[in-house]
């Protein structure tokens, strides 16, 4: 006996909100990508809990796909960040449009 399913969902939900907070409020592009990773991880935790609850392995298969998508997403995202850095010399999300960092 572990815990009720709702506690797992609660943990995943709080983790997802933390990731969303990080993505929305930080200006550093790297921290925004980190927030996306946190959100994907929260979804994986929810899927594992659901797989345990229903006694079916489809949730585990979905977590495999989530991990693959996270790997692809982070590689593309970091390559884009490096491109942006070469072009504009900054990774501040507010400074990419213009030359001067407008506040």
């Amino acid at each position: 006996m572990i815990v009720p399913y709702s506690h797992v969902i609660f943990l995943a939900g709080i983790l997802f909100l933390m990731g969303m907070f990080c993505t929305v409020t930080r200006r550093n592009l790297m921290m925004m990508v980190l927030g996306l990773e946190i959100m994907l991880n929260a979804a994986a935790i929810a899927f594992i809990g659901a797989a345990l609850r229903h006694g079916h392995m489809d949730g585990h298969a979905m977590v495999i796909f989530i991990i693959a998508v996270a790997a692809a997403e982070v590689s593309i995202g970091l390559a884009l960040i490096v491109c942006i850095y070469r072009k504009t010399g900054t990774i501040d999300a507010g400074c990419i449009e213009g030359d001067v960092c407008e506040l």
């Binding site: 006996m1 572990i2 815990v3 009720p4 399913y5 709702s6 797992v8 809990g49 345990l52 609850r53 006694g55």
Partner: peptide, 8 residues
């Protein structure tokens, strides 16, 4: 009142 998950 939900019953806890069984370990598997």
């Amino acid at each position: 009142s939900e019953e806890p998950l069984k370990a598997a």
